[in-house]
């Protein structure tokens, strides 16, 4: 098993999929796999859960019955809430972007020439976000530990006082 971050790309346009896959594969920290449908991505996720998914918004341009991007996004966030999903679309409409964010997408990228650089930056942003979230969790745990320590100290003082081992006067002697 590789220690690289597992990235899945889902796009029903083979050229778009290949271009993004080749581009992200240049970055050595990522193991990248591509899928033409959301169904195939979800099946693969059951075997190996991805850390990041680049997901096309319109996944039913070739097969009408195929799951569309929003459905796949909803399912990924429901089953694997810690997986970050980046939506990709040819539409630069704000309501489309807002809609994807509402369902938990990390970012929204508009297809086109700038999309590959944006995808690269988004990977870096996810890395930074996870690092910050990790630090925040560490501080949270430290605060809980410190708080519990203080409570234990107070309890100990009360017990010692009740047993007469320390006096309530200042100096405790």
């Amino acid at each position: 098993m590789s220690d690289k971050t597992l990235v899945y790309i889902v796009d029903d346009e083979p050229l778009q999929l290949e271009l993004l896959k080749d581009h992200l594969q240049k970055m050595s920290a990522y193991e990248v796999h591509g899928f033409p449908t959301g169904e195939e991505c979800l099946a693969a996720a059951k075997v190996r859960k991805p850390s990041i998914v680049f997901l096309d918004y319109n996944l039913n341009s070739k097969v009408r019955e195929a799951m569309d991007g929003i459905d796949v996004l909803k399912e990924i966030k429901e089953v694997y809430p810690e997986t970050e999903v980046v939506m990709i679309s040819g539409q630069d409409k704000i309501d489309v972007a807002v809609n994807t964010m509402k369902y938990g997408a990390f970012d929204y990228i508009v297809k086109g020439e700038g999309a590959f650089i944006r995808a690269e930056k988004t990977l870096y942003n996810i890395y930074r976000y996870n690092k910050l979230a990790g630090s925040a969790n560490t501080y949270k745990r430290l605060m809980i530990f410190f708080g519990l320590g203080m409570i234990l100290m107070v309890i100990l003082v009360i017990v010692l006082q009740m047993k007469g081992l320390i006096k309530s006067s200042p100096g405790w002697v």
């Binding site: 778009q16 271009l19 319109n58 039913n60 341009s61 040819g90 539409q91 297809k111 020439e113």
Partner: peptide, 13 residues
């Protein structure tokens, strides 16, 4: 609409 939408960015490349 769907087909034009999918083909459009490819021409840009």
């Amino acid at each position: 609409r769907q087909t034009a939408h999918a083909l459009k960015p490819q021409l840009g490349f």
